[in-house]
Amino acid sequence: MAATQRIVFQPYARRKQARGAPKLEACTPILCRDVEEGMHRAEKVAAGGTLFVGAHLVRSMVDEDAGDYGEPEILAAVGDVPDVED
């Protein structure tokens, strides 16, 4: 099977802690049908239309049969997101 494109919307929220400031946490990632769907979700977060404080939109090429997973490409980062190392 050939490699297929995966578009993942990774939202983030602030979770209260027993002590200290709320912590930024990754929520459940959402697999999108295409880049447009992911960008729509990211735009909603940027506009403040959700409970999320930020999000990454990531594309990668995946060949599950061969066990090959390409390097992720960040297509968008909106709001409050963690730093991503190169």
Score class of each variant (00 low, 15 high):
Met1Glu: 11
Met1Leu: 07
Ala2Gly: 05
Ala2Val: 06
Ala3Arg: 15
Thr4Ser: 11
Arg6Cys: 09
Arg6Phe: 15
Arg6Ile: 05
Ile7Trp: 08
Ile7Lys: 05
Val8Arg: 00
Phe9Met: 06
Phe9Asp: 08
Phe9Trp: 11
Phe9Ser: 01
Pro11Glu: 08
Pro11Trp: 02
Pro11Asn: 11
Tyr12Arg: 06
Tyr12Trp: 15
Ala13Phe: 11
Ala13Cys: 06
Arg15Leu: 03
Lys16Asn: 10
Gln17Trp: 02
Ala18Tyr: 13
Arg19Gln: 09
Ala21Ser: 14
Pro22Gln: 01
Lys23Gln: 14
Leu24Thr: 05
Leu24Met: 03
Glu25Trp: 05
Cys27Arg: 15
Cys27Lys: 15
Cys27His: 13
Thr28Val: 13
Thr28Trp: 14
Ile30Trp: 05
Leu31Asp: 03
Leu31Val: 10
Leu31Glu: 09
Asp34Phe: 12
Glu36Thr: 14
Glu37Leu: 10
Gly38Val: 06
Gly38Pro: 03
His40Cys: 05
Arg41Ile: 02
Arg41Asp: 06
Ala42Lys: 00
Ala42Cys: 10
Glu43Lys: 13
Glu43Cys: 01
Lys44Cys: 06
Lys44His: 09
Lys44Glu: 09
Lys44Trp: 10
Val45Ser: 05
Ala46Pro: 00
Ala46Tyr: 04
Ala47Lys: 08
Ala47Tyr: 04
Gly48Thr: 05
Gly48Ser: 08
Gly49Ile: 02
Thr50Trp: 11
Phe52Val: 03
Val53Ser: 08
Val53Asn: 03
Gly54Val: 00
Gly54Ala: 00
Gly54Glu: 00
Gly54His: 00
Ala55Asn: 07
Ala55Trp: 08
Ala55Asp: 05
His56Thr: 01
His56Glu: 03
Leu57His: 07
Arg59Ile: 03
Arg59Ala: 07
Ser60Gly: 01
Ser60Ile: 03
Val62Thr: 07
Glu64Ile: 15
Glu64Ala: 15
Asp65Thr: 11
Ala66Arg: 08
Tyr69Glu: 09
Tyr69Ser: 02
Gly70Ala: 05
Glu71Val: 04
Glu71Cys: 08
Glu71Met: 07
Glu73Pro: 12
Glu73Lys: 00
Leu75Phe: 02
Leu75Tyr: 05
Leu75Gln: 01
Ala76Met: 01
Ala77Pro: 13
Val78Arg: 01
Gly79Met: 02
Gly79His: 06
Asp80Leu: 10
Asp80Glu: 14
Pro82Met: 07
Pro82His: 08
Asp83Phe: 12
Asp83Glu: 12
Asp83Leu: 11
Val84Asp: 09
Glu85Leu: 12
